[in-house]
Design a protein around this nucleic acid. Structure first.
Lengths: 232, 232
DNA sequence: GTATCATTCAAACATGCGTTTGAAACGATT
DNA sequence: AATCGTTTCAAACGCATGTTTGAATGATAC
């Protein structure tokens, strides 16, 4: 009811960022208006434009704050693994753990705001808002090639094109799993995730690895009546 | 430039539906305004409200038109399989093919508008717009339980809770894969999908099956130095 | 104490939105 | 030919949005 809802100790800039993140998660990128955000932050409407230039600038700042930390953590995890391996190729499950474990643990961390943000990130990857997608792509540009190379080395027998597809699929499963807690109720009827925030990571990781190492198409381990042959 | 851009033969109602679907895919649900839609359809602004009552009604009609066909095709595919099996449990790959094959083929069909719609559907599942999510859930309510039961029978050794999680993950991988052709460029650098519309289905299906039949967490087939034990 | 800077504030601006209105145009039925 | 119901149309309504303005406020340095 009162105008101030956010943590009143922080300075205005940070309070607006927090409020924006929370409201964008809740209502979506376009539905979260500057008026809602500044009211929740206990700040004046004009303060948003003063500190961030525009709404796009604010949105960009919301993403940058989290993405910088996320991708740095990913790179550190990969660096650590490669240092231990001393030149030997990594195991697929190590690479997957390094890339997807960080955001999944972030999503499970209910203390920080990471949980809300990961839902936002997962949703935004599929959104058509061109400028956010491009921004996220730029932010990932430094980290994705490193993991691509690691996967290529870890799976030398799998065509690199296939690895890229499966990387893409893994990204999709994670994004959807994180953002779509509601969609799970569609499938389950009951709430599967309610009990344990760590449940998602524990369930998802084997699924991702199973998909990544699945037999190549056609020569499945129980090949059936699919199209008999296909010219390469 | 000219006011009419859609197929001029169809009647207004259908033209508006087509234009709405295309523009919602392109710009998102809230960014596609009735003015854009009716202009593209070559119709008057008021015609949208006349034929569909409101923008929500129009959006609902856009989804219903495709979802009804999609889910009916899924059920028919499952019916056909179960008839052939004559009471025996189905194979997992058959169930996955029946559920995910239909939308994937729909997405690959460039002749109809299904391609655009599947991108829309994939994106919308994660969107926070409450009313559309509920509508999609209702539309799927008839088909999901049937496939759940089929999977339970096909995988009697896997805990049902685990199957539901993996069904959820598969949905995510598919949604993201269909909607996020752009996101793939993030990973690949080049365009992997450009060559062949069928490529997605051929790549995705083995991934989904691999994930669905992955070993349960903990006792992986190459268990390593993960947390040594975990109390059940 | 005053000048300077960054920050906050209430108010307005222009624009676009979904929706409504009431009259005009059209086609089929009587 | 006249009537009725359906469909189209231009115009407006009320409202919410992002942004801008210019004055008020506060702290810091001279």
């Amino acid at each position: 009811m009162h105008p101030v809802e956010s943590t009143p100790g922080a300075d205005t800039r940070e309070r607006i960022l927090d409020a924006a993140e929370a409201l964008i998660v809740e209502h979506g990128l376009e539905a979260a208006s500057l008026r809602m955000i500044t009211r929740k932050a206990g700040a004046n409407l004009a303060a948003a434009n003063y500190h961030f230039g525009s709404k796009d600038g604010l949105v960009q700042a919301v993403f940058r704050r989290r993405l910088a930390w996320l991708n740095e953590a990913r790179l550190q995890a990969l660096d650590c693994l490669e240092r231990e391996a001393a030149g030997a190729p990594l195991k697929p499950h190590q690479i997957v753990e390094a890339f997807f474990g960080v955001p999944l643990r972030m999503a499970a961390d209910s203390s920080a705001g990471g949980q809300a943000f990961m839902r936002l990130l997962g949703r935004t990857c599929a959104e058509p808002s061109a400028f956010v997608r491009r921004f996220i792509a730029d932010e990932h540009a430094a980290v994705v090639p490193r993991f691509k190379q690691a996967l290529f080395r870890a799976l030398p027998d799998v065509p690199q094109e296939e690895i890229l597809w499966r990387f893409h699929f893994m990204l999709g499963a994670m994004s959807y799993a994180i953002s779509g807690i509601d969609a799970l109720q569609l499938v389950a009827g009951a709430d599967l995730a309610g009990d344990d925030p760590q449940a998602l990571a524990r369930r998802l990781m084997p699924f991702l690895l199973g998909g990544l190492r699945a037999p190549l198409h056609g020569q499945s381990d129980q090949a059936k009546e699919k199209s008999p042959r296909r010219a390469a």
